[in-house]
Structures are given as C-alpha cells and as structure tokens.
C-alpha cells in the first residue's frame, strides 16, 4: 500500500507546482517578449535587459523606502517607469549608430550597457540584499486543493492586461503595422516613408516597460540584489529561445513552459542543477525546434 500513496503524494504536488510555474512563467513571458520585440525590430539581442530592469527595481525600492525618497509605491513606480523609458531611449541612442552598421557589434554593446546599469546599481544602492514588496490585496483562497493568493491573481491580471494591450497595439494599430513591417521587411518600411528610428524606439521603450513590470512582480517572491533580476532575465532569455526569438506568442508560450518545467525540475529532481537544466532546455530547443515551438507545431505567427 505504500507505493501507490507515494505516487499519490507526488501527483498531489503536481497541480500546485504547475499553477505556481504558470504564474512565474507569465513573468518570464513579459521579459521574453521585451527581448523578442527588440530582436524583431533591431535584430539585436539586448543583454542589458536584465540589469536595466534590476536597476528599475532598485529605483522603486530607493524611491519608496526612504533611501532616495519617501514616495508612495505607485508614485515610485511612476517615476521609475519614466526613468527607465529614458534609459531605454538613451540606450538606443547610444547603440543606434551600431544597429545600422552591424547587428553583432550592437548586441555586444548591450553587454556594456548592462554592465554600466549594474555598476550604477552597485554604486547607488550597494551590494546588500533588500526586500521589495508588492502592495497586493491580502487574499487567500483554496480552490480544488489549490492555494491561490492575492499575489498570484495580481500577477495573472497584470500579465494578462499588459500582454493583451501589447497584442492589441501590434495587431490593430498603425504603430503595430509599422512594427510588423519593420520586423518583416525594413526596406519596404523605409520606402513607405516610415522613420526606422521611431519604430525602433517604440520597441525599445515597450521592452523596457515590460522588463520593469516583470522585475517588480518577480522580486516579491525572492529578495532584491544586484543579480536577482539578471538571473530572472536568463529564464526570460530561455523562454524567448523556446519561442524562436522572433515570435511574441512564441515567447508567451515559451515563458509559461519554462516557468512550469523549471518548477517541476526544481521540486522533483534538484534545485541545485536548475541552471544546468535551463541551459539544457536552451540547447534542446535550439536543436529540435530552432524556429520556436509555434513553428514546430506548424502554427507560425504574424507577430
């Protein structure tokens, strides 16, 4: 009788693990979609994504905790978003001359910008670990044996609204048409009189905002250090790879897949080898479906 009950115990954990993986996966998806937007448009893998989002999380912390200022949380987020959009525009301004010269040089330049962001974070906030909470409604419920918290629902709601809004803009607005034209055929976009730089800046700023949203939502599950968000973005990077790096819906699915798989691996196998497992996922994805899960499933996508 002991054997079946062990299996039952293992399986009883499965549902909550998948659920929490789904929640974190939504956040990986936010990060991944930012990477994909920049890559589709500028053909640059933005390695500064994690460190800039990390700087943003620290800014929110600094502005709301009294380290820099004593603002309300919402005010701090508002100020941070403005600051990070400025950073994104500045980043693009710095690498724009490289984007049009060589994709590879521009990609490597983002590494440098990431290091600068990390350096600024260290300089201003130090190397200490801090706590940054999210003002979520104190909600707790159990549905079919699944514990659902206010945090879970907040993440789901914010992710759904953000991703929904992004897809709406890209699918149904003139700006979205410009973005899709840029990523499919930049020459045609230029011939039609589009400002390539304006479309690039749109992608970079949206990506930066997605990064900040992802960072602010992930930090409460752990703590905030100089490397927390960069590590989080590593998972987002894997999510983007699983999605094929050029598909926004692919990045969404990749994010959720990575979230669930990492959760299952950490729980059932070993938390120590989770980074190894992540790299294995990247390798397997690149070998088996280099164009992403959606392309492998025969779906493909317009965005």
């Amino acid at each position: 009788m002991t054997q079946p009950s062990a299996v039952a115990v293992l399986l009883s954990d499965l549902f909550p693990l998948v659920w929490s993986g789904l929640i974190t996966g939504c956040l990986y998806a936010l990060g991944a979609m930012g990477l994909v937007m920049i890559f589709k448009c500028s053909k640059v893998v933005n390695f500064s994504h994690g460190n800039v989002a990390g700087l943003a999380a620290f800014l929110v912390y600094g502005l709301s905790s009294g380290v820099l200022l004593q603002l309300s949380w919402g005010m701090a987020v508002g100020v941070t978003l403005v600051a990070i959009v400025a950073v994104a525009v500045l980043t693009y301004a710095l690498i724009a001359p490289l984007v049009f010269a060589s994709d590879l040089t521009a990609t490597i330049a983002t590494l440098g910008i990431g290091l600068i962001a990390q350096g600024v974070t260290l300089l201003v906030f130090g190397a200490d670990i801090v706590a940054l909470d999210l003002p979520v409604p104190p909600f707790r419920a159990t549905v079919l044996g699944l514990r659902i918290t206010g945090y879970d629902l907040t993440v789901l709601a914010v992710a759904l609204v953000t991703i929904g809004a992004l897809f709406f803009v890209i699918d149904h607005t003139k700006l979205g048409i410009a973005f899709r034209a840029m990523s499919d055929n930049p020459f045609a976009a230029e011939v039609c009189g589009l400002s390539l730089k304006a479309v690039h800046i749109f992608a970079w700023t949206v990506a930066a905002v997605l990064g900040v949203v992802g960072a602010l939502l992930i930090v409460p599950t752990t703590f905030l250090s100089v490397t927390t968000v960069a590590v989080f973005m590593l998972q987002a990077f894997a999510a983007a790879v699983v999605g094929g790096f050029t598909s926004l819906p692919g990045a969404l699915i990749g994010g959720v897949l990575i979230g669930v798989l990492m959760n299952l691996f950490t729980y059932y196998v070993s938390p120590e080898y989770s980074s190894t497992f992540l790299l294995c996922i990247i390798l397997v994805a690149l070998n088996i479906f280099p164009n992403g899960v959606l392309a492998a499933a025969g779906g493909g996508s317009r965005v």
């Binding site: 003139k174 410009a178 034209a181 499919d184 055929n185 045609a188 976009a189 009189g193 589009l194 317009r302």
Partner: peptide, 18 residues
C-alpha cells in the same frame, strides 16, 4: 518589396503612413 506578412489592407495603410 511588399510586406508579405501584412494583409493587403495593412500594406496599403503602410503606404499612406504619413
């Protein structure tokens, strides 16, 4: 140099972008 992934309508909107 049309944009293959865009619809005919979207390509035309692109042409009249400004």
């Amino acid at each position: 140099a049309i944009v293959g992934s865009l619809t005919v309508r979207e390509n035309l909107i692109l042409g009249g972008y400004q």
